[in-house]
């Protein structure tokens, strides 16, 4: 529908070319919904092999950015490169490298857990034996073996999240993009999932997670980006972004200061005022 070949709007700063070595490289992403500009010029590089946390207050544009980065939402302007492949120019090739857990969407919940995983695997073009094998492994890893024949509609919120996560992983993607993966998941399962993700990163995979929980991101992630009001306020290694502070304090500084006025207010370091 929208014409994506048009020139970008008068951007405040020249946009550097996309980083083709990065797992995920976003450049000048804009998205407007009616009157509201949800994402206003997001540039972000997710280095290959990083465990990348995306944090921001509610309505900051996290989900919108991730949707545009995974092919679920067409940006008004800007580009997305997945390991150097332009997602919006060659969606099939780029999507094959991505595993996506979107937030706030349903699953095909009249299928059983095993059927849903099989469906996701077959849609990804895997053969029957591979799908069967990985379905078993994933059900095991997610502690859902006992519920394999239960319809997903009868799953609890945490189980639904886990089966969604499993179906995002079944084709062994190079990049996993997970929107709020730990929401409603019990601590034991969350720890298991974290182990799986860490192992995946250690083997060269890249994980992007969005979260509200700063503590979790600080402990779990190697890199972090703080996003608010549709802008990236800070990005880099967790140590680099938080400096001497805890990530949470740093986040409140960044986001709290942002609220006072428009423009470059976030450059001033006003801490206590809200």
């Amino acid at each position: 529908m929208s014409d994506q070949t048009g020139p970008p709007p008068a951007a405040p700063a020249p946009v550097p070319p996309p980083d083709v070595s990065a797992a995920l490289s976003l450049r000048g992403l804009w998205k407007r919904f009616g009157q509201k500009i949800a994402v206003a010029g997001v540039d972000l590089d997710v280095p290959t092999g990083s465990f990348f946390g995306l944090v921001g207050p509610n309505g900051a544009g996290k989900t919108t950015s991730l949707s545009m980065a995974t092919g679920l939402l067409r940006p008004d302007f800007g580009t997305v490169h997945v390991h150097g492949t332009d997602l919006w120019a060659l969606p099939e090739r780029a999507k094959a490298e991505l595993g996506v857990l979107p937030d706030g969407v349903r699953l095909f919940d009249r299928l059983t857990g095993a059927q849903l995983l099989t469906y996701a695997g077959l849609l990804r073009g895997l053969d029957r034996d591979t799908v069967a094998e990985r379905t078993e492994d994933l059900l095991q890893a997610m502690d859902l073996v006992g519920d394999r024949d239960t319809f997903v509609v009868d799953y609890s919120a945490g189980m639904t999240k886990k089966i969604g996560l499993a179906s995002a992983m079944i084709h062994a993607p190079r990049v996993l993009v997970l929107d709020e993966p730990f929401e409603a998941v019990d601590p034991v399962s969350a720890a298991n999932i974290r182990d799986i993700l860490h192992g995946y990163v250690a083997d060269g995979g890249t994980v992007v997670v969005s979260s509200h929980v700063m503590d979790l991101v600080q402990r779990m992630c190697s890199h972090v980006a703080v996003i608010a009001g549709g802008h990236v306020l800070a990005a880099g290694t967790v140590a680099g972004v938080r400096g001497e502070q805890s990530l949470e304090d740093r986040f409140v500084d960044l986001v709290g200061g942002r609220r006072e006025s428009e423009g470059l207010a976030w450059l001033r370091s006003s801490s206590a005022s809200s």
Binding site: T70, G71, L72, P91, E92, K95, A96, L98, V100, P102, G104, V105, R106, L107, F108, D109, Y119, A120, L123, R124, S167, A168
Partner: peptide, 15 residues
Amino acid sequence: YDNTAFALHVATGVR
């Protein structure tokens, strides 16, 4: 009818 479960088709790039 799929409602937002259709996201799976979009994410996996079903032709």
